[in-house]
Design a binder for these strands. Sequence first.
DNA 1: GATGAATGAGAATTCATTCAT
DNA 2: AATGAATGAATTCTCATTCAT
Lengths: 207, 207, 207, 207
Amino acid sequence: MAMTMEIEPRKLPRQRRAQVTVEAILRATAQVLAEEGYAAASTNRVAQVAGVSVGSLYQYFPNKDALILAVAEEHSRVMREALIDTATKYRDGDFRAGVRHFVRGMIASHAIDPALHRALVQQLLHLGFDHFAASQAEVRALVEGWLIFRAADLQIENPRVAAFVLVATVESVIHAAVFEQPALLADPAFEDEVVRLVLRYVGAAAG
Amino acid sequence: MAMTMEIEPRKLPRQRRAQVTVEAILRATAQVLAEEGYAAASTNRVAQVAGVSVGSLYQYFPNKDALILAVAEEHSRVMREALIDTATKYRDGDFRAGVRHFVRGMIASHAIDPALHRALVQQLLHLGFDHFAASQAEVRALVEGWLIFRAADLQIENPRVAAFVLVATVESVIHAAVFEQPALLADPAFEDEVVRLVLRYVGAAAG
Amino acid sequence: MAMTMEIEPRKLPRQRRAQVTVEAILRATAQVLAEEGYAAASTNRVAQVAGVSVGSLYQYFPNKDALILAVAEEHSRVMREALIDTATKYRDGDFRAGVRHFVRGMIASHAIDPALHRALVQQLLHLGFDHFAASQAEVRALVEGWLIFRAADLQIENPRVAAFVLVATVESVIHAAVFEQPALLADPAFEDEVVRLVLRYVGAAAG
Amino acid sequence: MAMTMEIEPRKLPRQRRAQVTVEAILRATAQVLAEEGYAAASTNRVAQVAGVSVGSLYQYFPNKDALILAVAEEHSRVMREALIDTATKYRDGDFRAGVRHFVRGMIASHAIDPALHRALVQQLLHLGFDHFAASQAEVRALVEGWLIFRAADLQIENPRVAAFVLVATVESVIHAAVFEQPALLADPAFEDEVVRLVLRYVGAAAG
DNA sequence: GATGAATGAGAATTCATTCAT
DNA sequence: AATGAATGAATTCTCATTCAT
């Protein structure tokens, strides 16, 4: 494992033409990764699908890992936004409804492009980056604020730890579903159970 | 990605000498994987560490994947046995003690060789085999049976989904510990927290 | 033996530089095959002789067989052209002169690069492709048409079978010369004998 | 190409058990060669099919080439005998009938096991031995004697050369049929044409 | 900026042959 | 005599990366 791995984009595209090139590359990477799998995602293949030369790819990404990371970054940004949109809306409403929407948002965000998500997780684990874990920080902060705001109604000792456990747990359960039983993602009973898990854990369950 | 991947062991070692060779190969694979990581685990490197020629390796394993899978098989067999032993014992005893032993078993099974476990998870995901998923199905079935058997004492709507959620949750919390904080595996407070999570979820918590 | 053997060239060279590379590879393959024999014709050796990297070789040929086939294709194209040129010219002239030119064309085409021819025959048989057989089909058809066209002057029962026998006979006599006595290819007496064999067979001999 | 190639059988089997082993090896080699082709004919595969260990194979054959040669030897012995049987019978009868029987014998001998014949020719060419050419010496002598005996009825200048041309020609034409159009072997028109080729060549044709 | 030809280290895999049991 | 485990040199092929045009 290279200690001196560059992962920063090489240079920013200035002209519109370059902008287009970079987007084509990212889209092609995501597509190849999702449709043809890890093994097929060689730099030459990606460039071909993007309708661009390998040379152009290396103009903007110093190496393959940086390319994958950029795609992961984009993918997790989209996921994060979808989630935060949903979750923020219910900040002041009924807590139980809020939890349900949070969970629904998490499930929905994982359903955006499960194949890409899978491929990225595989690649990133393989690269030694737990990229999605890092991107959860923001979500965690959101949830922590929420727990503090509603502390009176809950049985929680340490909101920070609870937020960590909660986000990690929900994420992992959904994750497991993505990998092992994708059908569950569309099963209302699955949503119900995850909601129950959260509510009971924070001491806000009905019965 | 080859569609026709052979993964069955090639032939069974008959003589004791061969037995020793196969064991050396498996041990070397596990060691290289755990200590030097995926990238270093070339067939030649493995053979070298095993003190055996590459040819011998290919006498028993048709390709590299089969080799990795054999190691995973063995590792998950050991894990599964440790777990099922523990869990089965408490099938009829006190439920809360049973949960504690189940959790303890899960933790213990992941503490057997965390580095190898990490490497295998990375490698298998990467190969597209979700080998541990398969072995979790068995555990899941065990837990589901258990939940149904004890339904009267618990507050569960859908035992099948609940079993999935439970196993995934416990597994992933422990997993996170394996990947990020191996020290936790030996911390009694960690066990306590996971037990609490489970008991609350199934509605069997004391308070 | 792979059932799904790719033998089509991988991509066409667009730039002049690539054109040069491909030609160098083909020339090197022919040379190594002819001078050092089958056993020496490894892809790395060929690349080395071509003054090119193995990678470049694989950029244009998907595998070793495709490389050999491309050389065979070229060689048999040259042979076929030499032959058909000669033979076609005499389609309407004097039959006996026509036979002489046909035979002369066959001999000349085999004299182009006997060592390469030898190596290719060995190699192609060995690969299971009877490449020259295919190209002989064309010659056979030409001869059959010729026999039918001149049927009045000849004593032939079954032109199709006769064409097969004729071409096979001439081909193999010349072949034997290539393999065993290359010097004969340049000896006019050899041409005379083969012509006599043909003329007597088709019943057009003078005496 | 090894200059010091051993091709002599290593030792003669003395005990009946060994006799059986050697025969099994030869039969397995022929079978694998004919049915699975050159590529599959590894020494280990042959030993396996023979129900014998590789070690035993090497007890009687110093290397792979010697094994192939032994099979070729046996195959050409069988062919030769079939031919000589047929041909000798007609030594004193009608010349034209004799030729027909000679040709028929040649065709029949090539029809004994065409797949094996093909595989052997491929292998032997590849090894640089023109084994079947050598084994023709005996047949050639037979034919020469025959031509001398019937010289009065024929138009032949040099019986030795004529015998060479005749045997080589007939052999090659049949050979071409084996490789390119096996169906011809069973076609009476093919036999007719080959007979005509011979009769006209030696000046014994009817018209 | 873009191109795509060229590179070559490195990885997987085979198979004739040996030799201890 | 027979066994079959072990050997390892040799070969094919891939793919991230560079750089001249």
